[in-house]
Simulated assay, not measured.
Amino acid sequence: MSSALYAGSDRSSETAPGRVTRHSFSFGPHYDPANLGFGPLVCHNDDLLDAGAGYAEHPHSELEIVTWVLEGALVHTDSTGARHVLEAGSAQVLSAGSGIRHSEAADPGSGRCRFVQAWLTPSEPGTRPSYATGEAPRLSSGLVVVAGGDGLPVGTVGARLQVARLAPGEVVTLPEDPVQHVFAATGAVTLEGLGLAGGDAVRLTDEPGRTVTAAEESELLVWSFGTPAG
């Protein structure tokens, strides 16, 4: 059994015109051999974009890319000709498979956009690229499955993303899966006495069923995996 707190203030960051990105894992020039991933989770980026700013078209392959929009609206286009506008409370799973190109930018008409994006290693390589989008069910009480399980399909066996919007004092029980990445996206919560401010994360191994209590209005993102962390 183990747990480790990763403070948001310790995340590496990258700035570009109209964009600030904070990385929870080793990423690009911010190489950290001791922090390459957690189970199949190899990237967990927190992006804040000015209206119209974002990422020009770029390639991906052999990744499951899961995006959750916290604020504003994100415009996604890709080399298949698809175009989606993801508003706050919406998710997208892009299975890059054998290769795809895409771009992402904050909708110019919706102000700034904040989104969290996770990259996972797929269970089966070389698949045909695909994507799925959807608005989460009503986030009113407890954790709601957004991707994996009963949510949008993810090509990483056993992976699930669950989201909760919590009122002050509200308590949720974490999943039973043995490997969990718990991220306080907004607000402040406590995990059985361990305080997490917005941007903080906890990585849990073999500690299922623990409880999280909101100290104020908060949004919680929980990745859970059915296999031990590597």
Rank of each mutant, 00 (worst) to 15 (best):
A4D: 03
A4E: 14
L5I: 08
L5H: 06
A7V: 10
A7S: 11
A7G: 00
A7F: 12
S12L: 14
S13Q: 15
E14A: 11
T15M: 03
A16S: 05
A16D: 11
P17K: 02
P17V: 06
G18C: 12
V20M: 01
S26C: 01
F27N: 00
F27H: 03
G28A: 13
P29G: 00
Y31P: 02
D32Q: 01
P33A: 09
P33E: 12
A34P: 07
N35S: 12
N35I: 02
F38Y: 15
V42R: 15
V42C: 05
D47M: 13
A53M: 02
A56I: 09
A56K: 14
E57C: 06
E57L: 05
H58Q: 10
E62W: 14
E62A: 07
E64N: 03
I65F: 13
I65N: 08
I65W: 11
V66N: 05
T67A: 08
W68F: 11
W68T: 14
E71C: 05
A73W: 12
L74F: 04
V75M: 02
V75T: 06
V75N: 05
T77W: 02
D78A: 07
D78C: 08
S79R: 07
T80P: 08
R83K: 15
R83P: 11
H84L: 13
V85Y: 04
A88V: 08
S90F: 09
V93K: 15
V93R: 10
G97I: 02
G99N: 03
G99Y: 07
S103F: 00
E104L: 04
E104P: 10
A105R: 09
D107G: 01
S110W: 04
S110I: 10
G111F: 04
R112P: 03
R112C: 12
C113A: 14
C113G: 10
F115I: 11
V116F: 06
A118W: 12
L120N: 02
S123R: 00
S123M: 03
S123N: 02
E124I: 04
T133Y: 04
T133N: 08
G134F: 01
E135L: 10
A136M: 09
S140V: 13
S140L: 08
S141A: 14
V146W: 01
G148F: 08
G149A: 09
D150Q: 01
G151Q: 08
L152W: 05
L152N: 05
P153E: 10
V154F: 07
T156I: 03
V157G: 08
L161G: 06
V163R: 13
A164Q: 03
L166Y: 09
V172K: 08
P178D: 02
Q180H: 05
Q180D: 15
Q180C: 08
A184T: 10
A184Y: 15
G187K: 02
V189G: 00
G193E: 00
L196N: 11
V202I: 10
V202Q: 14
R203D: 13
D206R: 04
P208E: 04
P208T: 00
R210I: 07
T211L: 03
T211M: 00
V212S: 02
T213R: 15
A215E: 12
E216F: 03
E216D: 03
E217G: 12
S218H: 10
S218I: 12
E219F: 07
E219K: 13
L220E: 01
L220V: 07
L221Q: 09
W223I: 07
S224Y: 02
F225Y: 10
F225S: 10
T227W: 12
